[in-house]
Design a protein around this nucleic acid. Structure first.
Lengths: 345, 345
DNA sequence: CTGAAAGCGCTTACAG
DNA sequence: CTGAAAGCGCTTACAG
């Protein structure tokens, strides 16, 4: 007794409504549905209407994987940042998101946690999404990351800082010059014992660049140079307040403090107030970023304003420009910064 | 004269290294490479080594689209929030990201900008990624969104607030009770003319719920009830300061103000200080969220601490639990809140 | 303007 | 443990 068996091959099949279902209902070929959806003008009004009816009747949702696989093009743009707990990157991401979304692209967030090995793995994974382009914070990468990105060959923007050798495009500002500018300001104001406070400067190397700029300014003015007063915690107002107290105890001769960022500096300012330390009479305090709250403290904080959201917007626009094939200006854009002198110095 | 033409069909082809390339180099079938990568134990050590060599020699990166299409399973988890300019959602996202990433899932960020129509479109688009599950902030949705989500049938967590009828799972806290708790606190402290300040309460309906809770507490205490003092701007410290001044001018009889969130309340506190308005002697100030900085102002701010990052973590864990098929406790989790009484009231 | 065929790069379901 | 075949749901490249 032989039994005839039909080879019934079953596949995962999501059970979702497909193009084919829509096509059947509309009485057209699947490709026509595809056209009606992707290039409505290339289809007659009558068919377009039938397709639209079928799409909404069936609740059709395009399968992004099938589309991207078939066309070898995706609207994914990975955005790789070192941290999400820093307001700065959030604002950059906001700028990016706004621009990308309008153009129908999806940002895919990657968080390296200031770890270049993690970055490398992230990049490898994210390239599997055949992204139309990428945005990466920072210009320091593992060699392997660099190789991957170069080999990938699609548009890439490195953001936040400026570098001599971008892999492709570059949008940011010079943190060394920002630090130098603040240093010159403090010197001009007459401060003579100037210190820098920051955390994890090996990882947050842009903060280290600001320190370097400050140091150059101090050297140029013939003033005492000091290593940074470094702590080992994530920046926060609380940490800034503690750092202020610790530093003034360790080096009471200081008459001005440049904090690595406004989170720290605002915290220092609030702490000074609680402790009765008069700013700037006892010690001047300065920050970096230009967070909104820095203008509202008593005294308001002298800081350097960086155009964070704008960095995101410009980077996204440059990327889209290249993706869509039209030239988009120079490969390297210095967005600059602005020294905001307020009463804390 | 007839010419024979080979039908040379060309396709987009990304030019990237594929499984097939790896298989050829390793001298095995593509499916073996797939196995060596996805289930290493199912392949002999020798072949595994050959495959690994080929993968790294060629720099192979898995094509996520092909994989997801073939297996009808993706490791994408859309996370839909109403805003990115609010620190609260950032912290929630951080919690989610941490948990998802460890498990090898990718969050895909959607921003509704407090617009339920946008939300609906976003959900439709994001479902095209065949997500393994979804996380959505809020329990108010357009009917169409609800239909899409119900129809999709995969695990879903609605977060931030608690509702009687979650579509699937629910992780959050009761904003009405939070408002009520603050109201009772202010009443107990002896304040008698208590106002609520917030913006865009139609959209930010969770803030409106806190107002409602406050109003209930005032009613229960037999105190004067007032409509909220509403402005039309995004919450920020600057806006909070302005709202303080405007409200005290409009209603000088007020002796306590409950702000919709800490961004506003901290701004009000800083502004009061600059203007010489003594808190809480002239007017008490309270907030909601428990942002770090609220503890550092002078006076420090009385507020309600919500476990933001925890909401994200719990939501992500519950989702993964369901995705991976093991039960994961109750469908509804009240993460609670904590009244933090400080010197501003 | 419309369609039949082939293919994108994987994984599933069988088979041995 | 390993592999040949089929299929996931789209779009490209032709053809008419």
């Amino acid at each position: 007794m032989t039994s005839t068996r039909m080879a019934v091959r079953r596949r995962a099949h999501s059970g979702a409504v497909t193009l084919k279902d829509v096509a059947e209902r509309a009485g057209v070929a699947p490709i026509t549905v595809s056209r009606a959806l992707n290039a409505p003008d290339s289809v007659s009004a009558a068919l377009r209407a039938q397709v639209e009816e079928a799409v909404s009747a069936l609740g059709y949702v395009r399968n992004q994987y099938a589309g991207a696989l078939a066309s070898a093009a995706s609207r994914i743009i990975p955005v790789i940042v070192p941290s999400l707990s820093n307001a700065v990157f959030i604002e950059v991401i906001q700028g990016i998101q706004q621009v990308l979304e309008e153009a129908g692209y999806q940002p895919l967030l990657g968080n390296t946690q200031y770890d270049l090995d993690r970055e490398s793995k992230l990049v490898a994974t994210l390239l599997g999404w055949s992204p139309a382009g990428l945005i990466v914070a920072g210009m320091r990468h593992a060699e392997r990351t660099r190789t991957l990105l170069r080999g990938y060959g699609r548009p890439l923007v490195e953001i936040m800082e400026l570098g001599a050798r971008p892999i492709d495009m570059n949008v940011g500002l010079s943190h060394v010059r920002a630090g130098e500018t603040m240093g010159q300001h403090l010197v001009e104001r007459g401060y003579r014992q100037i210190g820098f406070i920051g955390g994890r400067l090996k990882q947050d190397y842009r903060a280290a660049q600001r320190y370097r700029g400050l140091d150059q300014a101090l050297a140029a003015a013939g003033l005492a140079r000091r290593p940074p007063f470094e702590h080992d915690q994530k920046s926060s107002a609380q940490v800034g307040g503690n750092a202020l107290m610790a530093t003034l105890e360790a080096a009471p001769e200081l008459d001005a403090l440049f904090f690595a960022n406004d989170d720290l500096a605002v915290g220092a300012l609030l702490r000074a107030q609680r402790e009765g330390i008069v700013v700037p009479a006892r010690v001047a305090i300065a920050g970096f970023n230009g967070l909104e709250i820095s203008a509202l403290t008593t005294p308001p904080l002298t800081t350097i304003v960086s155009p964070r959201q704008q960095i995101g917007e410009i980077a996204a626009r440059k990327l889209l420009g290249r993706i869509q094939g039209h030239a988009s200006g120079p490969a390297r854009i210095d967005v600059g910064f602005r020294l905001e002198v307020r009463a804390s110095t």
